[in-house]
Design a protein around this nucleic acid. Structure first.
Lengths: 338, 338
DNA sequence: CAGCTGAAGTTGTACGTATAACCCCGTCCG
DNA sequence: CGGACGGGGTTATACGTACAACTTCAGCTG
């Protein structure tokens, strides 16, 4: 681990500037007004510059008893949505001199080998996205401040929660499809026991159920294109009259639905309408472009970090869901008259 | 920043177990063989468990003079490719008790407000992916160990480099298309001054140029679907006989090519062959599925971290490019006989 | 039984920083 | 002219850990 010549410390800077180490700390910490003369301050800054001095973060954190670092726990970073959440969170964090370190889920990296590795970075707080709380308690020390994204506000154990307005998103989708005249639905559902997906299923069922002569079939699948393809094809081939619209829990599932439709010779949107959820890059890559609910993932991350910072300051984080918006593209149309 | 009751320290554990702080450090650091009795060791571990003790990383890092943390610099995390690079790097890092912290490019987060924020975490080394070195020098202290991914081995200023075998990837593509019989090519090129993209252009030109009666047109575009669409449409409408194959620097650009083809009423692959590069999730989402070069991004990240660890140990990192593989799907076919 | 050895600890210190508490000296006021 | 005051610093200390150097004592050997 030999780092050639050891890095200069504040003491080295002090020596070079002909002052005490404390003075260096004062100047560089911007707390020198009325304590150090303008001239010496300038000398110190120059010396720091010349030596290429960088403060030792470990020492600073130790002294201050805080790390200015938050942990973001996400299921999978390769999902564009969570990458955007990270970027939003990191942007706000940077504004406050905080860093964000990632823990891409127990699956992605494996559980920490020993109990200490889980505390890899010194942490001030945790933002957990779409996570079951069991996995969390291992990471969370005893009482690390916690903000939960995308989780049931009802049982978040006192942790602050930030959510997208999923409910409204589902309402917008169903209203759109009902207005177009669809009556027979297939719900291509993510096979994950998670709050958001529960909400989606529930809202879809009740909302559609309020109209007359409607029917909702459900097919569960892991969130992969192949899984969705198989599930959709299977469900579309099922008995009884074929659904005219597929509501997918996720854009990726919609891609599977597209492929199933193609296999069965159904044209989208003429023979079959398909909707997604998330509005990932995928949505506009496929043909026809996907009608889906746009989620502002970056804003989601920003709000999460804002909430965490509030908690750290002892304030109550702001309430309120983040609005979402249905984006109507080419994958939905009125059902073919039978 | 009040964290209710302060966390227990090794001294608290010592008190609880009736030993000295040093003994705690020994036991928990697994260096106690022949220094502490089995019985006391057990008592210490129990006490640590009971108190929920987590060592203070800042203090440990300060003591050891190392952070066990690497910085990964990537252009944009929302690009699935770089997210995968991260996961690979993080996996290897975790195995060695290292953490990985991200710096998603000057663009993504903005330059660090003050020179110190750039050193947010205490770092042992840097892995920079697809970056110009200017942006780096600001972050890199004076002599932080550096590994460069996806950069010109010839002018990496002594830093270790790890690369995918881009050259071979381009050869595989061109050989595939030449064998199919294509003679007129459009190169949809990323408008970025970066090593990889230079290599791609160069290899395409020379390789295709070696065959008789061939022609390569180039259209530059930013890496966005809309940009690629515009560039491709424009180029396809250009004067002279129309290209029969579009070679794209990137899968995302291929999506633009698909859209251009659709607009012009050209069917893929019958009227027009299209190839990508990267093999992102996009590649199998679009129809027909894209013939592209598969890059193992995770392995790329793993190799990058392995190289960095080697440098940190004072060893010479392993050489050799990572092999890539052409995946032939449905977007390429022999050109229509004219 | 003096001296040595090894087990089982303990004491002490250093890492680099931030800051509280102190100090010195020139000025100004009463 | 004594003392209060403030500008411009300095000295000393603590944060929590890891580890080198020391201590203590029981058991053994010659």
């Amino acid at each position: 681990m030999a780092r050639g010549s050891t890095r200069p410390t504040s003491r080295d800077v002090a020596r070079a500037a002909g002052v005490s180490q404390a003075a260096v700390s004062l100047v560089l910490g911007d707390k020198w007004r009325g304590r150090v003369s303008e001239a010496t301050a300038a000398r110190v800054r120059q010396a720091a510059q010349d030596l290429g001095y960088r403060p030792n973060l470990a020492a600073r954190n130790l002294r201050l008893g805080q790390a200015r670092t938050a942990l973001l726990v996400v299921p999978a970073l390769t999902n564009e949505f969570f990458a955007a959440v990270y970027e939003g969170a990191a942007r706000i964090a940077a504004k406050h001199g905080f860093g964000v370190v990632l823990y891409p889920s127990p699956e992605g990296i494996g559980p920490a080998p020993d109990p200490f590795a889980s505390a890899r970075a010194a942490l001030d707080g945790i933002i957990a996205s779409s996570m079951a709380s069991e996995a969390l308690t291992e990471i969370r020390g005893d009482d690390l401040p916690l903000v939960m994204l995308d989780s049931d506000p009802a049982d978040s154990l006192g942790a602050a929660t930030v959510n997208l307005d999923i409910t409204d998103g589902m309402h917008q989708i169903t209203d759109h499809l009902l207005t177009l005249g669809h009556r027979r639905y297939l719900h291509l559902a993510a096979d994950i026991d998670s709050w958001t997906f529960h909400v989606r299923a529930r809202e879809l069922a009740t909302r559609v159920g309020q109209a007359a002569d409607t029917e909702v079939r459900t097919a569960k699948t892991p969130i992969t294109i192949e899984g969705a393809l198989a599930a959709a094809e299977n469900a579309l081939n099922g008995p009884g009259p074929r659904p005219t619209a597929i509501v997918c829990d996720d854009d990726k599932l919609a891609v599977g639905a597209y492929k199933a439709a193609r296999r069965l010779g159904l044209r989208i949107p003429n023979d079959l309408s398909v909707t997604g959820f998330d509005d990932l890059a995928l949505a506009t890559a496929i043909e026809p472009e996907l009608t889906t609910v746009h989620l502002d993932a970056e804003l989601f991350g920003e709000r999460g970090m804002t909430a965490l910072l509030a908690v750290l300051e002892g304030e109550t984080p702001p309430e309120g869901n983040i609005p979402v918006e249905l984006v109507v593209r080419g994958s939905t149309a009125p059902p073919r008259p039978s």
